[in-house]
């Protein structure tokens, strides 16, 4: 399946490149249509993919962060869009640098992005500008740091309750 995808870029990718040109690069991925998108254009491209007649990517299936630590740019935000009408998926990858990873929020396009963006902020410290309520979702407010970053030690605990001092 991956072979055919590489040889025949799908019509969606053709349309994307015709519309946005330099801002979009086709990436090689075994799962299907994947593009690397410029951070400043990401929200605009996603909005276009959602609203353009004939594409109708009306569902945000997933949104998550990735940390490729030694690499520069270090972070990535991956959007997986799905079109119910055409039964088609597309993956958008946005690369962000280590300092101030920030990207425009897509909550105004997809309501489901609200919690997903909060999770990406909580776990990776990626800021989504324009998000209505960007606070921690899985961890507690007292937690310091972003646990899914590669440089966060996997067993560094920050307990809220002090341990029991008096045992039986």
């Amino acid at each position: 399946m991956s072979e055919t995808k590489k040889n025949n870029p799908s019509p969606v990718l053709d349309q994307l490149i015709a519309r946005f040109g330099e801002a979009v690069q086709i990436a090689d991925a075994p799962h299907g249509d994947t593009v690397i998108v410029e951070p400043t254009k990401a929200a605009e491209i996603i909005g276009w993919l959602k609203n353009e007649p004939g594409l109708d990517f009306n569902m945000l299936m997933d949104l998550h962060g990735v940390d490729y630590l030694p690499r520069d740019p270090r972070f990535e935000v991956v959007y997986q869009l799905y079109s119910l009408k055409h039964n088609r998926r597309i993956w958008l990858r946005v690369q962000l640098g280590e300092l101030n990873p920030e990207i425009e929020s897509v909550v105004s396009l997809y309501l489901g992005a609200n919690w997903l963006e909060r999770e990406a902020w909580d776990m990776f410290g990626i800021v989504f500008s324009g998000h209505p309520d960007l606070r921690r979702i899985l961890m507690y407010e007292e937690f310091e740091g972003h646990p899914l970053r590669r440089d966060y030690p996997f067993n560094k605990r920050q307990p809220i309750c002090p341990p029991l001092t008096k045992h039986l």
Binding site: M123, R136, I137, L138, M139, Y140, P147, F154
Partner: peptide
């Protein structure tokens, strides 16, 4: 409020 059963599967799977 969610996250009361956040068990860090991703971090564990990385190990």
């Amino acid at each position: 409020e969610i996250g009361y059963l956040h068990r860090a599967f991703e971090k564990d799977c990385e190990q």
